[in-house]
């Protein structure tokens, strides 16, 4: 709820739209029900309730919503861009290991370094059970499935530390299955790639 990157930003905006729409529909339905006690009984047209309210109304709302969702979804896709950074995330019970295309051989434990202001593709996999990769303030989540590699696009607007979580229940150590994302400024990122940051 405190978005710090474009993906989380879009999703947060989506949520407020969804909430407003849902609240309006709920109040509408509640009012319709309350009115049943307020009006004299009598013949009520079936078509009005079933066809207009039951069929036409939700179809219109849902079509609009779906289109909106798909557009947002498109924006979250990991598409090719020139300044793309690629990292790997490998989950195990109950640790995370991260590798970097720009610094081959470099492995960090429970600490993911990324550059701020640039899109980062995280290639997520697992060596044992199913895990989930989630940095709530930067993007949605994606599962780490043994034998499969899933690609998630994340981006941090500004340098800082962001909490990351294992987000698929994975046994006794689930609660503390976390990691930290450190978003560097351009200089800090270069320093990290040179191996100067621990």
């Amino acid at each position: 709820m405190h978005p710090a990157g474009p993906a989380a930003q879009v999703i947060s905006q989506l949520w407020w739209v969804l909430l407003a729409g849902a609240a309006a529909i709920f109040l509408f339905v509640a009012a319709l029900i309350a009115l049943a006690w307020r009006r004299p009984p009598g013949e009520t047209e079936e078509r009005r309730f079933v066809v207009w309210l039951g069929l036409a109304f939700p179809m219109t709302v849902l079509a609009a919503l779906l289109a909106y969702g798909l557009v947002v979804g498109e924006r979250l896709l990991p598409r090719a861009t020139p300044d793309l950074v690629r990292v790997q995330a490998e989950a195990r019970q109950w640790d995370w290991r991260f590798g970097y295309d720009d610094a081959p051989g470099r492995v960090t434990e429970n600490l993911l370094h990324i550059p701020a202001g640039r899109p980062v593709d995280v290639a997520i996999t697992s060596v044992d059970v199913v895990h989930g990769f989630w940095v709530p303030r930067l993007a949605g989540k994606l599962d780490a499935v043994p034998g499969h590699v899933n690609l998630l696009r994340i981006e941090a607007d500004s340098p800082g530390r962001y909490e990351g979580l294992g987000s698929e229940f994975n046994g006794a150590g689930y609660r503390d299955h976390r990691f930290t994302v450190i978003a560097h400024d351009a200089e800090g990122w270069r320093a990290f790639l040179r191996g100067e940051t621990p």
Partner: peptide
């Protein structure tokens, strides 16, 4: 309906 929208589900899932 909210969680049927994929991007929102990515945030709310689990």
């Amino acid at each position: 309906v909210m969680v049927a929208i994929v991007p929102f589900d990515w945030q709310a899932h689990d």
